[in-house]
């Protein structure tokens, strides 16, 4: 219901320069696209980066063919509970997790896998419960936060090669609900999370302990912060956050993405760089003539690149180190963009539309 008019502005020409359309995946059977991701797929001795698409009731695996085309390898049909999220496992082959739930919050995690020994595709339950957040970690592990009444459980589960839950380790939970996780890059035992009251929590995750090392406040002026990425450098912990309430015209006060440097020893922090919504989109109108603010809907971060779907139906891409928007995909004449995800390797953006069509862009 949005009449989209992109006003000529600062971003003219950037989309052609920075994003090149490589190919298109069209799932004719898909009812409504929910999520898209990438995963490593190994069969007959060859390892390829494949695309995973999810609708509410099924998950499909696509492998690259010649001439930038994609072929559907397999479709898992799921039960009555809708799919709400694909949870990919970094550095893991032939395994992908799916979050299912009736509301926006997942209730169960199922594991979809392929066994080369039996040449069969399967699925099994990893965890059930009122799960608030989940992230796939390196070394075939999953971390999740869940609530039972007033009790919060934060747990890391290791998976076997056959996809079964092997070991579980409980991390010390903070009082407030953890809504997102990020691995600290290069530190296998360090994990961070963002909470419902805008805190950053740091854990030590090893075979012996799940200690909560530090809780640091992000600041109330940046509500609903979601951590996407964390790394340690020169004694500081750098965290990339998105702010889902970000909107246009609040460029300094409410950016879409921020890089914050924390000193974990003192819990003090300072903003390093912020990335605001792209300019030149003022005066937006719905078909009924009412005005609306351009807002951030959902996004993804890979290395120093961020991408987000905006309420205008466009996808914006930022260089987080420069703090500026570097590309803009306007809404397609056939429909608005609904999903923006980075591939796990290479500078590749997956842009999804609600009808299940996924466009692969080289960035």
């Amino acid at each position: 219901d949005v009449a989209e008019q992109l006003t000529p502005g600062l971003l003219d020409g950037l989309e052609e320069e920075s994003l090149q359309l490589v190919s298109k995946l069209k799932d004719s059977s898909s009812s409504c696209a929910v999520d898209v991701s990438t995963m490593w797929w190994e069969a007959a001795g060859s390892r390829e980066l494949c695309v995973v698409t999810a609708s509410e009731s099924s998950v499909s695996l696509w492998k690259p063919l010649a001439s930038d085309r994609w072929g559907r390898v397999y479709t898992w049909q799921l039960g009555e509970v809708p799919v709400i999220q694909i949870v990919s496992l970094p550095d893991t082959c032939n395994l992908v997790c799916i979050a299912l739930g009736d509301l926006e919050i997942g209730e169960m995690r199922w594991l979809l896998l392929y066994s080369s020994e039996s040449d069969s595709f399967g699925q099994s339950l990893v965890k059930a419960g009122n799960i608030k957040a989940v992230l796939g970690l390196k070394d075939r592990r999953l971390v999740s936060s869940s609530r039972t009444g007033q009790e919060q459980q934060v747990e890391v589960v290791s998976l076997s090669e056959t996809g079964r839950s092997k070991d579980g380790q409980t991390l010390m939970p903070p009082e407030e609900t953890v809504l997102a996780f990020a691995e600290v890059e290069g530190m296998r035992e360090a994990l961070v999370g963002t909470t419902a009251v805008n805190s950053i929590v740091v854990w030590s995750v090893n075979v012996k302990t799940g200690q909560l090392l530090k809780k640091m406040h992000v600041g109330y002026s940046y509500p609903a912060s979601v951590c996407h990425r964390a790394y340690s450098d020169s004694g500081l912990l750098f965290v990339v956050l998105s702010h889902p309430h970000a909107k246009e015209s609040e460029s300094c006060g409410n950016p879409a993405f921020r890089v914050i440097a924390f000193n974990p020893k003192t819990a003090r922090s300072t903003g390093v760089m912020f990335s605001s919504l792209p300019p030149g989109h003022a005066g937006r109108q719905r078909c009924d003539g009412s005005a609306y603010d351009l807002r951030y809907l959902e996004g993804d971060v890979k290395d120093a690149s961020a991408a987000a779907v905006l309420t205008s139906g466009a996808i914006a891409v930022w260089d987080l180190l420069l703090g500026r928007c570097t590309a803009l995909l306007p809404p397609d004449p056939e429909g608005s963009w609904a999903l923006a995800r980075w591939a796990t390797t290479s500078a590749c953006l997956l842009a999804g539309q609600r009808d299940g069509t996924v466009y692969v862009y080289r960035y």
């Binding site: 530190m187 740091v202 200690q211 020893k265």
Partner: peptide, 23 residues
């Protein structure tokens, strides 16, 4: 970032916090 803004910085913050935290 200066040390005066953020307080004393340690390159071994993770190990030091792990040793200080309750088990």
């Amino acid at each position: 970032c200066s040390e005066s803004d953020l307080g004393p910085i340690s390159l071994n913050w993770f190990e030091e916090l792990s040793a200080e935290a309750p088990p």
